[in-house]
């Protein structure tokens, strides 16, 4: 007979049933109505949008201001004086140098990072952890500390300053490309390559026709990050470049240290902000292919 045990169960069942939460039960804290939460959400959205957007405001206002004396709320006369001054400062050449430098850095750092990420994701690499730490270290290293030293080495080795700048910036970009590709490879299913091989594809054919198209969006994101490293750099170009390479940040810095150059600085800054934004729009659109693991 199981009567005694089932009695115990019934007691417990009743107790648990009495404790059961019923819909609308009062007494639970932190209850918020949808209306209040909605207001709070809209308010915080507005506040955060303001926080991120506010620094863009002076660029837009000053770029088209010919004269804007201190107490006035808005520029007095609009015009292209800032643009003219920026062009006179060598803006076009600097823009071209910046673009070229960033593209070269992206073109080198992206394949290096992708290959390293592939090797790290396979777990057959000896000293894998050490390699990961080394490849990640440039992110944490104070750039000026490394640059002061490497500058001496490069000078003594007679490396041309332009090559030196590219080398150091590729090294700064490698952590970003390696680790964004590692994330991509963590979600990548080797089954696609295996399927191609079992269907008769050579490893080269499988690489070009299957593997690369599938990781193309991740490669684009990696390349974008490497491009940003080159595009944003000031210190490496200044110290290692030794004046041979005048990029956009360098002439922005020299304009900004002068007085009364506001509209020229704003025009130059705007021209440094827009290209990455255009690339960002392209990169975030290239998300559709999904080589994720298929369960």
């Amino acid at each position: 007979m199981t009567l005694s045990t089932s009695n115990v169960d019934v007691d417990r069942a009743q107790r648990i049933q009495h404790e059961r939460r019923m819909p609308g039960d009062a007494g639970r804290p932190l209850s918020q109505s949808r209306g209040v939460m909605r207001t709070a959400r809209i308010g915080s959205t507005a506040l955060m949008s303001l926080w991120f957007a506010l620094p863009f405001l002076p660029l837009v206002l000053w770029s088209f201001a010919n004269s804007w004396s201190a107490p006035d709320l808005l520029p007095m006369t609009l015009g292209v004086d800032g643009l003219t001054a920026a062009l006179a400062n060598g803006a076009v050449a600097a823009f071209g140098d910046s673009l070229l430098l960033s593209l070269i850095v992206a073109a080198i750092a992206t394949p290096l990072g992708a290959m390293a990420a592939r090797a790290l994701s396979r777990r057959t690499l000896p000293f894998g952890r050490l390699v990961s730490v080394l490849l990640f270290s440039p992110v944490l290293l104070p750039p000026f500390a490394a640059v002061l030293g490497i500058n001496v080495v490069l000078l003594r080795a007679w490396v041309p300053p332009e090559l030196g700048v590219i080398l150091v910036l590729v090294v700064v970009a490698i952590p970003y490309t390696t680790f964004s590709m590692r994330v991509a490879y963590a979600a990548y299913d080797d089954g696609f390559d295996e399927a191609a091989r079992t269907l008769g594809a050579t490893s080269r054919f499988a690489l070009w026709r299957i593997h690369l198209p599938l990781i193309a969006p991740a490669l684009a994101r990696s390349a974008f990050l490497a491009f940003l490293v080159g595009w944003s750099d000031y210190l490496v170009t200044l110290v290692v470049g030794g004046g041979q390479l005048v990029t956009l940040p360098l002439i922005i810095a020299s304009s900004a240290s002068g007085i009364g150059n506001e509209s020229s600085v704003a025009v130059l800054s705007l021209s440094a902000v827009i290209p990455p934004l255009i690339l960002l729009a392209f990169v975030s659109r290239a998300r559709n292919l999904n080589p994720g693991k298929q369960s």
Binding site: R20, M22, P23, S31
Partner: peptide
């Protein structure tokens, strides 16, 4: 009209 956490499910 209740949120999930208010339904006692």
């Amino acid at each position: 009209a209740l949120l999930p956490e208010e339904r006692g499910i």
